[in-house]
Amino acid sequence: MPEDVPLSWEEVARTHGRKIYNFAYRLTGNPDDAADLAQEVLLRVRRGLASYQPGSFEGWLWRITRNAFLDDVRRKNRRPTSALPDELDRFAAISTPSPDDVLASLRLGEDIQKALLGLPYDFREAVVMCDVIGLSYDEIALASAVPVGTVRSRIHRGRKMLREALL
């Protein structure tokens, strides 16, 4: 078995729960949807762990995550939401309203999220998996069930679109 295979659901939840939540949040821009999705993914992981075949654990996990997300979108019969949430920053990046520079960087974060939500799904997913989650191209290919060349192309075009949106 590859050494990166966690042994138990608890361990997966502990080590990957936060990544799954961040993935979902960056794709939906909505904390409630992201929390629901993270919970659904962990449920599926719990059910699926027994039948997990040794291989790329990351690819397997993110495929589940991606499918859960797409199922959710289909079920709700709507496009992934583009609503911007109230800013929920990480602990070390407290939102303090007065200083200009802090405000600027916060707005920057919102701008990036907004630009991200403007990307077509395939491109958004590719850049989030690469730059937010830190997956390799091979892992993204496994998760998205596309060839590595497609991953390369999606990431490239996704970044170019993002750059234009951020102008």
């Binding site: 939840a13 936060r18 961040n22 904390p31 920053d89 990036i112 490239h156 170019k160 993002l162």
Partner: peptide
């Protein structure tokens, strides 16, 4: 490309909402 990539990587990492992992 470098700028777009850096922008994405500068996004804050969000904490899991409390209670999502049943005490974890």
């Amino acid at each position: 490309l470098h700028l777009a990539r850096s922008a994405l990587r500068s996004l804050p990492v969000l904490d899991l909402p409390a209670g999502l992992l049943d005490g974890e």
